[in-house]
Amino acid sequence: MSNVLTLAEISQHNTNKDCWLLIGGKVYDVTKFLEDHPGGDEVLVTASGKDATDDFEDVGHSSTARAMLDEFYVGDIDSSAITTTKKTHAPPKQMQNTQDTSSGFIIKLLQFLIPLVILGVAVGLRFYTKSSA
């Protein structure tokens, strides 16, 4: 039978001497792991005292890291005491193209014509200088 804890109980364990995390409805005492955590102890201490599930998942922990959680298991969260809001992925907003299609057409036309004019002038000058000599 597992130990059922409240968020108030979990939030009391929020220092580098006593650090508990709530991940996926389960509570873990990661105090002994703080020194060994690849991201540093501050990351874990900052995530303590609240639901750290999204933080844990966003990092993309390996299956080995997930398996390590078992040795730190303390109990489960009292699900009636917490309401989690699941983060939904929102795609990044696209910049709106404020140019109308006619000005876009003019720009493309100029991008094509200006190099041709420069090339024509260069070739014309070359022939003009040869015929003048």
Rank of each mutant, 00 (worst) to 15 (best):
V4T: 13
L5Y: 10
T6V: 04
E9T: 02
I10C: 01
D18V: 04
C19A: 05
G24E: 02
G25W: 02
K26W: 01
Y28T: 09
Y28K: 02
V30S: 01
T31G: 00
T31N: 00
F33Q: 03
G39L: 02
D41R: 14
D41A: 15
E42D: 14
V45T: 00
G49H: 00
K50D: 13
K50A: 12
D51H: 13
D51T: 08
A52K: 02
A52F: 03
T53D: 07
T53K: 09
D54A: 15
D54W: 05
D55G: 10
D55K: 10
D58P: 00
D58L: 11
S63R: 07
T64F: 14
M68F: 10
L69D: 01
D70R: 00
Y73S: 06
V74F: 03
D76E: 13
I77T: 10
D78A: 11
T83V: 11
T84Y: 11
T84C: 08
T84K: 13
T84W: 02
K86Q: 12
H89I: 09
P92W: 07
P92E: 08
M95W: 04
Q96Y: 06
Q99M: 08
D100I: 04
T101C: 09
S102L: 14
S103M: 04
G104D: 14
F105G: 14
F105L: 15
I106L: 15
I106D: 11
L110A: 14
P115W: 00
L116C: 12
L116Q: 12
V117A: 15
A122T: 09
G124E: 11
G124K: 08
L125H: 06
R126E: 12
Y128N: 03
K130F: 09
